[in-house]
Simulated assay, not measured.
Amino acid sequence: MSKRSEKTIVDIAEELNLSVSTVSRALNDHPNISVGTKEKVKKMARKLGYRPNALAAGLRNNKSKTIGLIIPRISMFFPAAISTIIQNKLQEYGYHLIICQSNDSYEQEVALVNTLYSARVDGLAVSTTLHTTDFSHFDIFKEQHIPLVFFDRVPLNRNVKVIKGDDYRGGFAAIEHLIQKGCKDIVHISGPLSCSLYVERVAGVKAAFQQYKLPFKKSRMFYQELTRENALKACAQIFAQQPYPDGIFAANDTSAIAILQYCRELNLRVPEDIKIIGYSNDPRSEIVTPAITSVDQYPEMMGERVVAALIELLTTPSSGTHRYSQEIIPIQVVERASTGGDTIVKPKAKAKKAKVEK
C-alpha cells in the first residue's frame, strides 16, 4: 500500500486560488482575514485532510509548546498523581506534555533525555531513577538554557532547580509517631541509599532514634527496591525468630500493605501486637483493614510547584548565570487504625522555599 501524501497549505491555496500567506493567516485566525475567508479555508482544510505541522512551526519560532516529563514508573501512585497534575496545569498555559517512564533504568533515563532533547521540548521535568548518581546526561539542557526541573527524586548538592518532599522530616515523623504509640523495637524498610529520598529519610529515622534515646539497630534496617515481593522477603527475615518487632516503618505503602498481609498470616494483631506505618498516602492504604497510617507527601502541591517552576524559567530571560532554587514540600502523618488511631484530618500545608542564585 502506497503511503498517503500529506496535504499542505500550498494545496489549500491552489484549491481556493488564494495566496499561501492568506491561507496560513486564516488557519491561525488572524484578525485581518475575514470570517468568510476563514470559514472557506478551514472547510477546504478538513476536506483535504490537512494536518498542521507542529514540528515545522516549532522550528520556525524555536518553540514546540511541549514539555518533557520523565518519571520512574507510571504504575506507582505518587508519580502517577503528580503526572496528572502537571499535565492539567500545563494545559492551562497552552503546553502539551510528553510523559516517559524510565522503569528505574539508568540507561533508559539517559536515552529518554537524549530523545526529548532531539524532540525540541521547551522544558524538562524529571524524577530520577533509584540508581542515578551521574547526572551529566542532563547537562545539555543546562548548557542550552532549556528549563530543567528535578522533583521528588533529585540530585543532591547540584546547581539545579529542585522541588522535593521534606524527606528528612518524613523519616523522623514516622519513627516519632511509632515511639509515641509505645513502640520500642522498630524495623525500617527503606529504599536503596543510591536515591536522595532514602538518604534523607534514613537520616531522619536515625535522628528520631537518637532524640528519643532508643538504640539504632542495623539488623532492623532493610535497604531494597520497595516492591511487594521484596517486602515479603524482608518479612520472612524479620519474623524468622522472636522477639518480633512492635513497630514497622515501610518507606512506601505498597510495602506496608504487604507487611500487613504477612502479619495477618502469622495471626499477629495490628495494631495490638505490631504497629505499621507507610509512606505516600496511597489511596489503597485507606481501604485495607485495618487502614494503614501513612505519611502524606502532597502530590498535588508538588505537581503545581513543578509547573510553576517551569513556567517561571520559560518566561524569564536566560542569562549567563544559572538561577536555581530548592523548594521543600511538607509532609503530614495521617494516623489510621494500623497504629491505633482514627484518621486525623490533615491541616492545610504550605511549601517552604529556599532560593539561591548563582
Rank of each mutant, 00 (worst) to 15 (best):
M1G: 10
S5F: 10
S5I: 12
K7N: 06
V10D: 05
D11Q: 09
I12G: 02
A13G: 07
E14W: 03
R25K: 15
A26C: 10
L27S: 03
L27F: 09
D29P: 02
P31H: 06
V35P: 12
T37I: 10
T37V: 12
T37N: 08
K40F: 13
M44Y: 10
R51H: 14
N53Y: 05
L55H: 14
G58K: 08
I70H: 04
P72Y: 03
I82E: 01
S83A: 15
S83V: 02
E92W: 00
Y93F: 01
G94A: 00
H96W: 06
C100H: 11
S102D: 02
S105G: 06
T115E: 08
R120A: 14
G123K: 00
L124R: 01
A125G: 11
A125H: 00
I146V: 14
P147D: 06
F150Y: 07
F150E: 03
F150T: 00
P155A: 07
N159G: 08
K161D: 08
K161G: 02
I163Q: 05
G165I: 00
R169N: 10
R169I: 14
F172H: 06
A173C: 11
H177W: 05
Q180R: 09
C183W: 03
C183R: 01
D185R: 13
V187K: 00
G191I: 03
P192K: 02
S194D: 10
L197I: 14
L197M: 10
Y198E: 04
V199F: 04
E200G: 01
G204D: 02
F209Y: 09
Y212T: 08
P215N: 13
K218P: 03
F222E: 02
C235V: 11
A236Y: 07
F239Q: 10
P245S: 10
T254K: 11
T254S: 11
I257H: 05
Q261T: 09
G278K: 07
Y279E: 00
V295E: 04
Q297A: 07
Y298D: 05
Y298H: 12
P299G: 04
A308M: 08
L310D: 07
T315Y: 00
T316P: 15
S319Q: 12
G320S: 14
R323S: 15
Y324M: 08
Y324Q: 08
I329M: 07
V334L: 06
A337D: 11
G340M: 07
K350C: 09
A351V: 15
A351E: 12
K353R: 11
K358I: 15
